[in-house]
Design a protein around this nucleic acid. Structure first.
Lengths: 155, 155
DNA sequence: CTGCCATGGTAAACGCACTTTACCACAAGG
DNA sequence: CCTTGTGGTAAAGTGCGTTTACCATGGCAG
């Protein structure tokens, strides 16, 4: 069944809103939109789990284990994702000489195209938000979020 | 395997950061923390998927179908969650007389306790963020996020 | 009244993706 | 050597969401 999404249009007061919902809802909206537009732009094979790899700052040059760590999943799960993305032609995994079994992930041309597309989508979203909020408030938002990002609170 | 999480401490410049990552990372951090502290506070059975039900504004008084819709999952998936939560003693589903097959979800005492605990955790998180950012910037953050929430951009 | 359909809910089967458990390869250090 | 740490892989098991299908009630057209 295709899931329809409709939000409750209930009269919610600002005072009731906690930071959890305030962050979660727009973050999810962005996530869904990225996947949707990515699929429409010709990257149809990319599914939700793949996003764990393509997330900022991207997998290029990284080790599988490191990618697993920052995505918060096991190395094995990451490995499955990487195998999938490799068979789809988005990445390659190459050996690193004189480094034991170490491997390194590289984006292919197609992989770079997909990653660039995500960037484009986000830029467009930023444009829309800026139009909604005004440049000043939007800049403030990013600034404050960046402070949180840097702090240990985001861990 | 227990998944360890460690963030890259790479020197990232604010200019590179797009709103996607800026929102996602703290939102995920909050989500993980809620589940973790909920489990520690004696609600050990609650798992990630259950959060789709306990999410703001909570399930009390709502129909299963409506809950499914706002969680973005199918009615069947929501039903499984509700059955699980019912068998764990967090909710009950009662019939609504003269309303067809309609059912209504009610939090039990334990369910209300869990929901209140989530509220407490979020309040504590807000306290910490306010200490980090200062009351003024924190209020600004919530205000701006609330504007986005109200706009169609969050859909 | 009665047959049809819209609405809301449920059940079973399937499939994907993650974890668990286990193992392999190489390097460094005693 | 043998051990330990690091990095990666493989296979089995499982949890959870979708797909497919069906059931129950109420409204409504004829």
């Amino acid at each position: 069944m295709e899931v329809k999404r409709k939000m409750t249009k209930s009269p919610i007061k600002p005072a009731e809103m906690l930071i959890g919902a305030l962050l979660r809802v727009p973050a999810q909206a962005i996530h869904r939109r990225i996947i949707h537009e990515l699929n429409e732009a010709g990257f149809e094979e990319l599914r939700v789990p793949h996003m764990a790899v393509l997330q900022f700052p991207g997998p290029d040059g990284a080790r599988p284990g490191a990618l697993a760590e920052r995505a918060g999943i096991s190395k094995q799960a990451m490995n499955q994702l990487l195998r999938s993305l490799e068979s789809l032609g988005y990445i390659v995994r190459s050996d690193v000489p004189n480094k034991g079994r170490a491997r390194i992930v590289r984006l292919t041309r197609r992989g770079r195209a997909a990653y660039a597309k995500i960037h484009d989508i986000l830029r467009e979203i930023e444009r829309e938000w800026m139009a909604e909020l005004g440049p000043r408030r939007f800049a403030e938002l990013k600034e404050i979020l960046f402070l949180i990002w840097q702090s240990p609170l985001a861990r």
